[in-house]
Each structure stands twice: as structure tokens, then as C-alpha cells.
Design a binder for these strands. Structure first.
Length: 576
RNA sequence: GCCCCAGUAGCUCAAACGGAUAGAGCGAGUGCCUUCUAAGCACAAGGUUAGAGGUUCAAUUCCUCUCUGGGGUACCA
């Protein structure tokens, strides 16, 4: 049976869940009473918010699905179930509608009373226990540390960061990780590029590598190297190791700015994981031996391949015999993904490892999954969020960027120009499955009409009202008689506030953070409607009680707005 | 060739495990500031959900095919 005493609720009311449970109880009761034949009652009864007021607040189509099984008309089943529906303080009425819906209408006084629970829960409002503390790692961005973060990583950064926040709010223990690709030939070329510029500063002609990095930041790094190290690397006996050391030093320098730039966007990592460490600790060799023992490794033309029956014709190159002369550079980047997943799931024991990858990497998913299988691990512990690419437009023209050509717009430039909030919000307004056009002119030009301001403005409006109320001598912290909240716009706002835990549940279960921006906009809209229809601080003497109640509502609404905005990671301004 | 994603209002996109009358923003239209911020609100306009089949009581949603766009396709990560 449901418990509805407000103080008994941990923090959050989940109406969808609750109505599903009620319906399930009714189904079981109808069975026990013989009104319905015996059948297996579904564990999860589907419940949705009604789209039209005529259909109540929530509805379930469950009876229509049972019609065939029970050989009864769905409407008849719905009527029987409705008759067995247990009474609940939250539900005012239960109606049956053709062809077999059961519609629930909330009890208005109960709805109004929940405002107190929201206010009491405060910052914990909406948090749900879905994760039960399971440990989840979200690995994202992980852009090459051979150059500054570009705007090409913006979507990845926001999706990963907000996903982590969503999961935290949903009761998971979450770690944010950046995988640093500090092994392989790219790093080598990067070091050689710095070395060439560095040499030039001393008038020494060092050939610039063919696959080098021509960006101006490389020259800046070379100057810094000259200031820090003088001629040390130029005079080194072993040019190869000098280049390598300079490359590693350059990566460290880059990573510092990468961390700063991401912080400017509001993104912070718990762990920066070095790809090189997979080799240095011997894990790579260990895992390779394991795969070999399992018969998943084949040698062909002097190269080493990972093969798995899942991969059809594909095989993954682990180690090449040629092309790269330096043996320590030989494993491919895909090869290091295999010990890396072992490190995540076995050594560090994450229950789930989430990868946030651009669509250009989607082809690697089956390979990593096959590797997990080959290592005897549960593939479902690896979750891949594949988001579609972002097309950057300026002046209606697509901007093509690449670090190797040295032509790109940095994330930092974008953040400095537009600010973190619009970027974060806009990157979350679409599902990860659709490509995104990001018009730089529009982002700047129309920034004050960006949807994020619409939501933030609602928050600001509430702050303004509360300020005015305090100036007028109202005790803003006081309680109010919530039963006075009866206006449709008041109840509409509260109902929207109550939907937050449901939205969070959906976002966490489907790993789809865009639901939050959609919801935030709807919540702001509900507040604006309330603001329009209901004078909050009244000067009428006989409306003092109503004013008190509405001040409580306004505060509770602000809490929910702030909760959503915090999860999205944008500011909650008190003035705009 | 094969694999992945998408195609919904003029534009950019939503639509929870398949549910009832497919929703927002922008743009264009008409109104609303002498009391809490007009970065707001109201009204009205805009749709054969790319096309064709199929499954289902019910399809924007699932399946097949076609068309269009984007991405990938083993040593750049």
C-alpha cells in the first residue's frame, strides 16, 4: 500500500511510479476477488501524463494490452480494474474512457500540499534512488592532448558532464574521467613539431615532420621550452628521447590549458587517465597474453590481430610489423582500448563504464564489445553514448577544422564569446541521435533570446518577487496555508514541479540528458503562467494568507528550477 | 558494397515501454507594461510525421524496401 504521509517520504514523490503501483494493486485485487481471471500481472504498469485535461492528469493503457490475453473487451477490463482501485489521498477520481484507458485525476488539495514537501526537501528534491549507489564511470571528451580543446568537443563535454550529474542525482556513485591519449605516433609527431620550432628559435634548422602540427600554439610551446630548458634538448645526445620528452612535456602543458578551458565551460574531471600507463604497468602485455591464451589473437604477415567471431570479417589490428619504426609506438589505439576496459571493469571495479563517443567512432563499438566478451566480461557493463556530429557554421558557411591543419576554433574562444550557459543549454536541446548545426553568428547575435535565458529569467523573476516581498515586510521564510492554492495556474505549476522526479528517472534510465532542457522550459513556462494569473504579493489586506501561501509556492518553484539548472550545469541568477 | 544515425510546421527541433486531439522556439500576424523584471504573456496561422508496404485494437514510434542527408569502413586517434 502506498504511504502518503508527507513526512514519511524520503524526499521525492514519483507519481507515475505511485499510480502504476496503485493500478497493479487493483489488478491483483480484481483477480483475488474473481472479477478477473488469473494471469500474470505485469511488474511495471505503464503510466503516462495525460496530454489533455479531459483525460485527467495521468493515465494507463494497460487494460488494452490485456484484452487479448483475458478475452474481454478492454473497456470492460478497465471498468473492473477501476472498481478495485484502492483509495489514495492523492487521487481525486478514477475514470474509464474508451477504448480502455484508465484516467487519474489528482486531488487538488493534495497537489497543493506537496509544495510543503518540496520546500522541506530543498536541494535534495527530485533525487531518486534508482542507482542504489552503483558505481558508474563516465569517460568523455578524451580529445587528443596534442592541441587545445576545440569547439568540436563541446557537445561531448556537455553530454558527458550532464549525464554524470543526472546519474548522481539518480543515486549512482559517479566518476568523470578523461582518457589521455599520450601514447602512439601522434605524440611522437607532436614532440617532433615542438622540437622543430624549438630548434628554429636557436637558428638550428630541424626539418618539420610530415605529419606535424603547424598550429601557432606549437610555436608558443617551443618558446616556452626555450625559456624553461634553454638549449638542453638541442644538445641532447639522443635526439629520439629528446623529442619524446619534449612531446610528453608538451602534452602536460596542453592538458593544463585543456583543464582550464573545460572548467570555463563548467566541466571538471575526477580522473585524468594516461593511456601510456596501460603499457608502463604491463597491463597491455598481460591482457594480450590473456587474449592469446583464449585463442583470440592471430598473427598474419608479421602483424598481430585481435579476432572474435562477433566481428565477422573484421579484425582489430593490435600490433603492426611495419610502418612505424619505433617498437613502443606500434600498438594501435584500438589495442589500448582493450586493457583500458579491463582496467575500468576489473581493476577499478566500476559496475558500468559509459563511453561518450562521437558518431565518427561508432564503428569501434562492436570491437570493444567483442574484446570485453573475449575477456569474459559482461558486455552490458559497457554503455556507449554515440552522439551525432556538430556542424559549425559561420556566415552560413560550414567551418572545417582539424588540429593537424592548425585551423580550428578553440572551445575557449567560444566560451569567451558566448558564455558557458548558452553553450551547455543549446547542446542539450536535442537528442544525441540528431546532428546539430551550431551557427556561431546566431549563438552570439541571438544569445539573449536563447532558451536558457527564458528559464533563467523565471528563476530571476522569483528572486525579484521575494526581494520585493521582504522589502514590503513579508516574512518570506514563513509557512502558509497551502490549501489556498487553488487557481488552475497554481495547480498547473505544482503539477509540473511534481513531474521533475519522473523526468529525472527517464533521463537517467535512457541516458538522455536532453529531457532536462525540455522540462526546464516547460517548468519556466508554467511559472510565467502563474505569475501572469496570480498576483503573488498582494496589497489587499484580506489576501495576506493567500500571499503567504503564494510566497511558499514561489520559493518551492524556485527550488525545482534551481535543481534542474544545477543538473544541467547552468547558473541560477538572482538578477538579469 | 556493407554498417550506424537522421528525415515531423517556412527554419531549428520535442513527443517517456507503441496510446486518445503530434508540441515548443525562431520567423511572419494581432493585442497586453500608472502595483511583484515585457529576457514576459495572450490570441490566431502554420502538418498526408520523406515515400510504399507490413505487424497491432492502436504506429511519428516496431519490421521490410525505396529515396535523401550525415558519419564510419582495420596501423590518425
Amino acid at each position: 500500500m502506498e504511504r502518503e504521509t508527507l513526512q514519511g517520504m524520503s524526499a521525492t514523490i514519483n507519481l507515475r511510479q505511485r499510480i502504476g503501483d496503485l493500478t497493479r494493486t487493483a489488478l491483483l485485487a480484481a483477480q483475488d476477488g474473481g472479477a478477473l481471471p488469473s494471469f500474470e500481472v505485469p511488474a511495471d504498469v505503464p503510466v503516462e501524463q495525460s496530454r489533455h485535461a479531459a483525460h485527467g492528469d495521468y493515465s494507463t493503457p494497460v487494460c488494452m494490452g490485456l484484452a487479448r490475453l483475458l478475452r474481454r473487451a478492454p473497456l470492460q477490463i478497465a471498468q473492473i480494474v477501476a472498481q478495485h482501485m484502492p483509495a489514495a489521498p492523492s487521487i481525486a477520481r478514477v475514470d474509464v474512457a474508451p477504448p480502455g484507458f484508465i484516467n487519474f485525476t489528482l486531488e487538488p488539495t493534495w497537489v497543493a500540499s506537496t509544495v510543503g514537501a518540496i520546500l522541506a526537501a530543498g536541494d535534495s528534491w527530485g533525487n531518486i534512488a534508482l542507482g542504489k549507489g552503483a558505481r558508474v564511470q563516465v569517460e568523455f571528451v578524451s580529445a587528443n592532448p596534442t592541441g587545445p580543446i576545440t569547439i568540436g568537443s563541446a557537445r561531448n563535454a556537455v553530454i558527458g558532464d550532464v549525464l554524470a550529474s543526472v546519474l548522481t542525482a539518480a543515486g549512482y556513485t559517479v566518476e568523470r574521467e578523461y582518457y589521455v591519449n599520450d601514447a602512439g605516433s601522434k605524440v611522437r609527431n607532436f614532440g617532433a613539431s615542438i622540437f622543430a620550432r624549438y630548434g628554429a628559435l636557436f637558428g638550428v634548422d630541424v626539418p618539420f615532420p610530415e605529419q606535424g602540427y603547424p598550429g601557432a600554439y606549437v610555436t608558443d610551446l617551443a618558446s616556452k621550452a626555450r625559456d624553461n630548458f634553454g638549449r638542453r634538448y638541442l644538445e641532447a645526445q639522443d635526439r629520439d628521447s629528446a623529442v619524446r620528452e619534449l612531446g610528453q612535456w608538451g602534452i602536460q602543458m596542453i592538458l593544463e590549458t585543456v583543464a582550464d578551458d573545460l572548467a570555463a565551460l563548467g566541466v571538471h574531471f575526477d580522473t585524468w587517465f594516461s593511456e601510456r600507463s596501460l603499457y608502463d604497468t604491463g597491463l597491455f602485455d598481460e591482457i594480450l597474453a590473456k587474449l592469446r591464451a583464449g585463442g583470440f589473437v592471430v598473427e598474419h604477415d608479421g602483424a598481430t590481430w585481435f579476432r572474435h567471431s562477433d566481428l565477422e570479417k573484421d579484425a582489430v589490428l593490435i600490433r603492426s610489423a611495419d610502418v612505424i619504426p619505433n617498437p613502443e609506438d606500434r600498438p594501435t589505439y584500438l589495442a589500448s582500448d582493450i586493457p583500458y576496459l579491463w582496467n575500468k571493469l576489473v581493476e577499478r571495479k566500476f559496475d558500468r563504464a559509459i563511453y561518450v563517443w562521437g558518431a565518427d567512432h561508432h564503428g569501434d563499438v562492436p570491437r570493444v564489445q567483442a574484446a570485453a566478451k573475449a575477456l569474459g566480461l559482461d558486455v552490458n557493463r559497457l554503455v556507449f553514448i554515440i552522439y551525432q556530429m556538430v556542424t559549425m557554421l559561420r556566415g552560413g558557411e560550414e567551418i572545417r577544422m582539424s588540429k593537424s591543419s592548425g585551423e580550428f576554433i578553440t572551445l575557449r574562444e567560444l566560451v569567451d564569446e558566448v558564455g558557458p550557459d548558452p553553450i551547455r543549454f543549446m547542446m542539450l536541446t536535442r537528442t544525441v541521435d540528431v546532428t546539430l548545426d551550431f551557427d556561431l553568428d546566431l549563438a552570439v547575435e541571438q544569445s539573449d533570446r536563447n532558451p536558457v535565458y527564458y528559464v533563467q529569467y523565471a528563476h530571476t523573476r522569483i528572486s525579484g518577487v521575494l526581494r520585493r516581498a521582504m522589502e514590503a515586510g513579508w516574512d518570506v521564510s514563513s509557512k502558509g496555508d497551502l490549501s489556498l492554492l487553488t487557481h488552475p495556474s497554481e495547480l498547473g505549476l505544482i503539477r509540473k514541479m511534481l513531474a521533475y522526479p519522473e523526468v529525472l528517472t527517464v533521463a537517467a534510465q535512457s541516458l538522455a540528458p536532453h529531457h532536462l532542457t525540455t522540462y526546464a522550459t516547460e517548468l519556466a513556462s508554467a511559472f510565467h503562467a502563474f505569475y501572469r494569473d496570480c498576483r503573488i504579493v498582494s496589497s489587499e489586506p484580506d489576501e495576506a494568507e493567500l500571499t503567504r501561501a503564494r510566497l511558499v509556492l514561489a520559493q518551492a518553484a524556485q527550488i525545482v528550477l534551481a535543481r534542474v539548472l544545477r543538473v544541467i550545469g547552468v547558473a541560477t541568477p538572482d538578477r538579469m
